[in-house]
Write a protein that binds this DNA or RNA. Structure first.
Length: 409
RNA sequence: GCGGUCGUAGCUCAGCAGGUAGAGCGCCAGGUUGUGGUCUUGGAUGUCGCGGGUUCGAGCCCCGUCGAUCGCCCCA
């Protein structure tokens, strides 16, 4: 045991039920995204460090203290992606797709963040995400959110999850609001928590979602973004809310929703749950109108979200929505001479789309036991003379069949 | 990065004024010379996370370390 190597802190193996859960999340999300006309993109797991430093904001926590950044043998500064929106925007630009907008993108894969691990929070974690690149229309905001809700429903976890939505307004609205917040919290600085005093200087909006009780009381009386929205920003937000209603997505307006990454503006939303302890955010995103430009492209207004597969999988498990395991048919030779014929039978089943397993060793009793443990629903018993019998492992019934019967289930 | 809790067989856990470890499940073999699930008999397995210290003696005490976990921070 002392010599056994362990997985690196914050990483783990996905095997068995956990693997199946993750697979179900990815497959379901991909399928639903397809229903909305989104196509999957595969971008590199590491990028030029500048992709993230520029995209997410140099001062954001993710960039300033959570990235896996290293120099490769050629002396380039590379970074394991901490999220995938910046990479997708970079790919849009490098592939010349800013000429054919909008692009509707789905992705699925591992992300890396150097954080203190906790349940539902890992250093290598998995995200799915959807992005609409190149549309400023409120309908694109509403549709990606609706697709996200559709996925949550399809996973069978909608019960404990609710959409909270807010707007951060455009740059003009946001600057005015930020100034108002600084003035308000500045006047009450002595009552703020230590953390929030730091936020006041660095990112005053962040005080809004503080968990500190004292902060919360101050926040309750703080100015609200809606008072500072420009007419255009207000119109956008109202249109998004209206269309979400048309999509049938239940929501709760929450003026305290804020985003941690710098690229967001206008719509900001989170699907949250109270069933995962401190890791309550399950899917989150918003509109980002400046990111593609940061990657060297033309102004390209976009919206999207990302969701933690690990958290979705945990919710599925808690909801008893775990995917069923496929029950195979076991093909068992009764004597050594029957092996070739058994292979033929197994292949016939597989050609017909049936999952077939062959136990590799032991006498018939041993193979039967293994087939049973593997959850086989039936066994095909193969005699040396080539005769086949079908044994239903649930009822125990057994009858003679021919090779041709196997193709017909 | 900060604070709390925890770490014993593959899994879930018990153990104790400090005297070098147990149960259930699982696993292996038999009861059954070609047929599983139930039942039954027997068997194997741990450097008690790792390193150091205190002690005649430590799974039980102390320190460190690694990992998990809860909260903060941050975020998906």
């Amino acid at each position: 045991m002392s010599k056994a190597l362990q997985p690196v802190r914050g990483t783990r193996d996905l095997i068995g039920a956990e693997a199946r859960l993750h697979q179900a999340v990815g497959d379901t999300a991909r399928r639903i995204a397809g229903l909305y006309g989104f196509e999957e993109w595969f971008t590199p797991i590491f990028e030029d460090t500048r992709v993230f430093a520029r995209g997410l904001g140099e001062t954001s926590d993710v960039v300033s203290k959570e990235m896996y950044t290293f120099e490769d043998r050629g002396g380039e500064s590379l970074t394991l992606r901490p999220e995938n929106t910046a990479g997708v925007c970079r790919a849009l630009v490098t592939n010349g797709l800013t000429q054919s907008l909008p692009q509707k993108v789905f992705y699925n894969g591992p992300m890396f963040r150097y954080e203190r691990p906790q349940k539902g929070r890992y250093r290598q974690f998995y995200q799915i995400g959807m992005e609409v690149l190149g549309s400023a229309e409120p309908l694109s905001d509403a549709e990606v959110i609706a697709a996200g809700w559709h996925i949550i429903q399809a996973l069978g976890i909608a019960d404990g999850v609710v959409l909270e939505i807010n707007t951060l307004g455009d740059a003009e609205s946001r600057d005015a609001y930020r100034a108002a917040l600084v003035a308000y919290f500045g006047a009450h600085e002595k009552k703020l928590s230590a953390d929030s005093r730091v936020r006041l200087a660095k990112n005053p909006l962040r005080i809004l979602d503080s968990k500190d009780e004292g902060d919360r009381q101050l926040v309750a009386a703080a100015p609200v973004i809606t008072e500072f929205l420009t007419p255009a920003a207000r119109a956008h937000h109202e249109a998004v809310l209206r269309q979400l209603a048309a999509f049938g997505v239940p929501l709760r307006e929450n003026p305290r929703i804020v985003r941690g990454l710098d690229y967001y503006s206008h719509t900001a939303f989170e699907f949250v749950t109270d069933r995962l302890g401190a890791q309550g955010t399950v899917m989150a995103g918003g509109r980002y109108n400046g990111l593609v430009e940061e990657m060297g492209g033309p102004p390209t207004p976009s919206v999207g979200w990302a969701a933690g597969m690990d958290r979705l999988a945990m919710l599925m498990e808690a909801a008893g929505a775990a995917p069923a395991v496929v029950r195979p048919v076991a093909v068992l030779p009764m004597d050594e001479g029957a092996e070739a014929r058994a292979i033929e039978a197994a292949q016939a089943l597989r050609q017909a789309g049936e999952t077939a397993v062959m136990e590799y060793r032991g006498n018939l009793k041993r193979r039967m036991e293994r087939a049973n443990k593997a959850g086989a629903r039936a066994a095909v018993l193969v005699a040396a003379d080539g005769a086949l019998q079908w044994k239903d492992l649930v009822t125990g019934e057994q009858r003679g069949i021919t090779l041709g019967d196997l193709g017909r289930g």
